[in-house]
Computed example of a mutant assay.
Amino acid sequence: MSTAIGTNLTSLFSSAGRGYTIPAAPSLAQILTDEDKKKTSSSPSTIISLSDEAKAYLAQTSQPANSDAMPLETLATNARNWFDQQYEKLGISSAILDGAVAVDFSSQSRATLSAIVSNAQKLFSKDEVKAAQSALQGRFDDAMAHHVVIARHSGDYASLYDAALAYMDEAGADERNTASWQAQRKALVDGAAAARKTFGKAPNTGNSDDPVQVLLAKTSEMNSPSSGASSGSIAARARALLDDQINAAADKGSELVFNARRTFGQQVDFSKFDNRMLATVSLNQDATFSIDEARAAKAELNQRNRLSLLNAINSGNSSDPSAGSLAMIKQYAAMSAEEKSVLGVTEQVMNRLVRGYNSLLSVQSSFSNSGTTGISAYL
């Protein structure tokens, strides 16, 4: 009998420290590759000839994907054009409105954001620079989220600073030449040294250039699309979305149903619900939702977390015994308080998980120091 991760998450967290692994399922890429092999083995090949103009166009359009390799001047020019297009598309005139970033930087590379922050070619306004700074800090926060969880549960803030330094060192040459990068890296080096002297607590560097200090000072939840909203407003939004579906079903002479085994009615659609919203419906603290609605929301949340965790584990290093624990820690770091409550993720669970993860790292380190290539050689 198999155990669903979402429905028994606590026991799964506990077993991670004992080397628990999950068999990897065939990936979509593998399935498609197999299907492609079947087709090509029985079907004649089709040869498509491209003109020189088409080849040149494809070469030109494929280059921007690797924006890190672009000259700084090109990055700045492209960013300037992107801002102008966004303003025209959104009908706005600034990257910041009412104190909040008004443009979506998700399609822009780290190198592009750095070019904006440094105001390369003097092409950007103060608001554009400030917005890009916020986006860069946000990406740093996302990358460091699980390291923060580990540091707070283990007291090892030096490793958090080491991880931050590794992230900083992934920067391209242009970013490394900026004053902001150099100031932040120096602050991190100083912070790492201070953290090694104050095990058990975060060092008080008092340095405004220290991105770890900025991150630790934040109290809002990370990685949740609805993190800035109150529980009441999230419940109201969820209620409105469900009512829209109920009304749409009634207009068709049907009803909204919450059980996949039902053969009639219109099945509820949770695609517009993020995980915090699902958890809010499941908790149903204000009795805003029916029993069926709360039960269906919890089932959907369990399924999402199960698939997310499986994907995280399967995408990691299968030969690394600590990969499963790290995947669970990352999953935990992305959860809202409501999700943790629904799934039973407590501080005790995280303490066990972090201890197990650190123990595995310690064992791996001892094997590495003894001249082996990894723990897997001894298993």
Results as ranks from 00 to 15, higher is better:
residue 3 T to L: 14
residue 11 S to M: 12
residue 20 Y to C: 03
residue 20 Y to E: 05
residue 22 I to Y: 12
residue 23 P to R: 12
residue 32 L to Q: 10
residue 32 L to D: 10
residue 33 T to V: 10
residue 35 E to G: 15
residue 35 E to V: 11
residue 39 K to L: 15
residue 41 S to T: 04
residue 41 S to V: 00
residue 43 S to V: 14
residue 44 P to V: 15
residue 49 S to A: 09
residue 51 S to L: 06
residue 54 A to Q: 14
residue 55 K to C: 10
residue 57 Y to K: 08
residue 57 Y to A: 13
residue 59 A to Y: 05
residue 61 T to A: 07
residue 61 T to I: 15
residue 61 T to H: 05
residue 66 N to D: 15
residue 66 N to L: 13
residue 67 S to I: 05
residue 69 A to S: 15
residue 71 P to E: 15
residue 72 L to M: 08
residue 75 L to K: 11
residue 75 L to R: 11
residue 76 A to Y: 01
residue 78 N to I: 06
residue 79 A to Q: 07
residue 86 Q to S: 05
residue 93 S to H: 10
residue 93 S to F: 10
residue 96 I to K: 05
residue 101 V to C: 07
residue 102 A to N: 10
residue 105 F to Q: 04
residue 106 S to K: 11
residue 108 Q to I: 13
residue 115 A to G: 09
residue 118 S to Q: 08
residue 124 F to N: 03
residue 124 F to Y: 08
residue 125 S to K: 04
residue 130 K to T: 15
residue 133 Q to D: 13
residue 135 A to S: 15
residue 135 A to T: 02
residue 137 Q to H: 08
residue 140 F to Y: 13
residue 140 F to R: 05
residue 148 V to H: 03
residue 149 V to M: 11
residue 150 I to Y: 04
residue 150 I to K: 12
residue 153 H to W: 06
residue 159 S to D: 14
residue 160 L to A: 09
residue 160 L to I: 12
residue 163 A to W: 02
residue 165 L to W: 01
residue 174 D to V: 04
residue 175 E to M: 12
residue 176 R to F: 09
residue 177 N to G: 09
residue 180 S to A: 14
residue 185 R to C: 05
residue 186 K to T: 13
residue 193 A to V: 14
residue 195 A to Y: 06
residue 196 R to E: 12
residue 210 D to N: 15
residue 213 Q to R: 08
residue 214 V to Q: 12
residue 216 L to E: 05
residue 217 A to W: 08
residue 219 T to Q: 11
residue 222 M to E: 03
residue 227 S to E: 08
residue 232 G to K: 03
residue 235 A to P: 02
residue 235 A to R: 02
residue 238 A to M: 07
residue 241 L to C: 03
residue 244 D to M: 07
residue 251 D to F: 06
residue 254 S to K: 12
residue 255 E to C: 03
residue 256 L to M: 09
residue 260 A to V: 02
residue 260 A to F: 03
residue 261 R to D: 14
residue 261 R to G: 12
residue 267 Q to G: 02
residue 269 D to M: 10
residue 271 S to C: 03
residue 276 R to F: 09
residue 277 M to K: 03
residue 292 D to G: 03
residue 295 R to G: 00
residue 296 A to D: 07
residue 299 A to M: 07
residue 299 A to C: 02
residue 300 E to T: 15
residue 302 N to T: 07
residue 302 N to K: 07
residue 304 R to S: 07
residue 307 L to G: 01
residue 311 N to G: 09
residue 312 A to K: 09
residue 316 G to R: 02
residue 317 N to Q: 10
residue 318 S to C: 00
residue 319 S to G: 00
residue 320 D to N: 12
residue 338 E to K: 01
residue 344 G to A: 03
residue 347 E to L: 08
residue 349 V to Q: 00
residue 352 R to Q: 15
residue 352 R to S: 13
residue 353 L to D: 04
residue 355 R to M: 09
residue 357 Y to H: 15
residue 362 S to Q: 14
residue 366 S to H: 09
residue 366 S to M: 08
residue 367 F to P: 00
residue 368 S to G: 14
residue 368 S to N: 08
residue 368 S to L: 15
residue 372 T to E: 11
residue 372 T to L: 13
